[in-house]
Design a binder for these strands. Structure first.
Lengths: 216, 216, 216, 216
DNA sequence: CAGTAATCGAGACGGTACGTCTGGTCTTCGG
DNA sequence: CCGAAGACCAGACGTACCGTCTCGATTACTG
């Protein structure tokens, strides 16, 4: 499952990226990247149904067997491609101002889910997770769980610094913050603009007045 | 698209259940039901990928062409089947007690989404809607929009009766109530128990204290 | 196995060759012919190894599944194509003059085996029969046995008319007439010219002087 | 092509069977033998189609590259294996009695072709020669030509000793002796028993009465 | 007695074809 | 005209081998 993990540590000293096309020291980095990029491109161009193992192989200039050697399904390829791309910052800021941090984070999350290229891949993968429980497990372990940990960060910091009560149910609170966002993206297709995300934050803050010292 | 509409009125009064297998007077109700049931069964037994036009035809004892004549895709069949089954009550109660009504409704919605057979079909369909924009439009028109109208009912009533302010942003408020629920069902797969749904309601009520006169 | 048999009797009355592309009344004659021709062409152009199911399908403008529906292997296709083509005259003449008839027949057989297009297919098939016992059985039943019956005809007639003894071992005698011919074609690749085939006949006649009345 | 020629002289006297797995001077005899044996075994077990380069490599415990280094095709491997095994005596006896020698030789040839293990390989190779002209040339040079020289020996001796006329067309006469035999083995699959081979010899002798002085 | 050159097992690589499966379309017949 | 039947073209599926390649280890000649 965790197929895409790079187990090739090339080039000890000073290494230029020596390219090997398949030898006893493992897989071809070149082929790996070509596959991931081809899969991404196909999803963008033709949608999920347009992503086929054969199509990926053809576009990547790679043999089908090479794909099957390292990935089990096309969804597995897409997950790898997604993880590689989505390494971009979805980490919440830490300005010290909880309100600001939450607003900023939710806006970025909304943009990621609804408008970015990676978001399109995300929606395809979360859809696939509904159909395929095994993939769902994998997807949650490799993306959703880490992402939820990032979601929790701002509140955790605020609890630590005493601005929020120690007994705060962080999981549920976070679900109330991000849930409506996912709901709009996945279900209603309503726009998720700043007004909406800011409103979610405002609702949260009103619920926990202690967190906004200036509210006194 | 809106293919499954029944244009055959089966046997008014006194009629013996004439079964026609294909005659010059309209489609076979028998075939229609067999197809919908077969699709449902296949989804339950083998999951979404196990539902194929060929499989449905075989199990329903119906020719493929008959299916294609009335539905465009397997998702379209499933949508019809879903609408037929999910006619069960997801209408919010109207006891006069907003808190109670919301609690009750969210519990029933949670059960529907996460545990019922129809919920499984729903998840498959919402997944397909991510992949197929045309289907998404159809699905929203035929299920999601009516469902959202049901979602709004309790709050609308409360606004009408003056227990909630007239300028309440019902859409956003509702998204905050049901969004976390969909999020758990579709994304995190966390359980959606009564504690969670009640908490969502409680949060809403705290945000609008006027609605609970007895809270004084 | 006997896959290529035409089981389609089209057109009751007065029929113009109505062409159907697949309906409940059996296979498409058009597809059948296209497949056989494509297989023949490929063998001629690229040799046995160049005949592939995929290649046949592509050239014939036919789906692979259609080929597999009616033939089990590429060899099976080639056998059908061969039988269709090789219906040409390999029937021994009946001039009343045994010597002349044998000479004529062996010359024609030699030409068929060594030089004709059909002969090339024959050599490919007899080769395949060495590798594949099941095909060998089929090939013998559908071509070799009928062919051997034709081989026997001249001698049988001569026995009937009393020019050859009634207890003649026709099978063995025939093997001695045609065996060396096949041997040269399949094994040594030596030329099989008239001098050679005439010599075989002469040898036979010398062995049975009674058959040549003028030899008295 | 003539790839399998042994250019390694294995261990003269006194040598312990030193095994080298690759060194600068010459190939591994061990690998060579393992390959030939694996090829033979596979042919016996799974038939010609079951012999693959990959299968040979796997069973012989040898890298594919090692096979390709010394042989060009799987048929080439089989030819080598065949030549190594078929070194058994197909040399005609020289008892002084032509009739006896021919009878004995044809019986042994028949047994070789139709019943021995080597005969099975021979049939596979002659089949391959039909498909592959380049291999046909190689096969003829390395086996068939020497074999035909052996076929000619008895008659040549008889000509030399004057028991057969000096102008005897040995090639054609031999083809008449062995041709029917190959015909039965390769084409008709009829049994080639002693009755049949003796009959061929008898026919020959009757044609050349001078060769059997005692026949007076 | 190091350096070098050839072979070895291993196995990844780009390909081609395999035989199977499903998707949609089309054509015919009986009711 | 509808429904059953099923052949048709199309094309993706996942597998098996092909023949090429690159690698580290091994070994025996060379300088």
């Amino acid at each position: 499952m965790a197929s895409g993990t790079r187990d090739v540590e090339v080039d000890g000293a000073g290494g230029s990226a020596r390219q090997h096309h398949g030898n006893r020291h493992g897989r071809s980095e070149q082929a790996r990247l070509a596959v991931l990029e081809a899969a991404d491109d196909l999803l963008a161009e033709k949608g999920f149904a347009g992503v086929t193992m054969e199509g990926i192989a053809g576009r990547a200039g790679v043999a089908k067997q090479t794909i099957y050697r390292w990935w089990s399904t096309k969804t597995d390829v897409l997950l790898d491609a997604f993880l590689q791309d989505a390494a971009e910052d979805l980490t919440p800021p830490d300005s010290g101002d909880l309100a600001h941090d939450l607003r900023d984070y939710l806006r970025r999350l909304a943009h990621f889910l609804a408008e970015s290229d990676s978001g399109a891949v995300f929606r395809a993968l979360i859809a696939q997770a509904q159909h395929d429980p095994a993939f769902a497990v994998d997807f949650r372990a490799r993306w959703l769980d880490p992402q939820r940990r990032r979601d929790h960060l701002s509140l955790e910091r605020a609890v630590h610094s005493g601005r929020l009560p120690a007994d705060l149910d962080i999981a549920t609170e976070t679900d109330q913050l991000v849930g409506p966002l996912y709901y709009r993206v996945l279900v209603t297709a309503d726009p998720v603009d700043h007004a909406f995300t800011d409103r979610l934050v405002e609702t949260f803050l009103r619920r926990h007045p202690s967190s906004t010292p200036e509210a006194s």
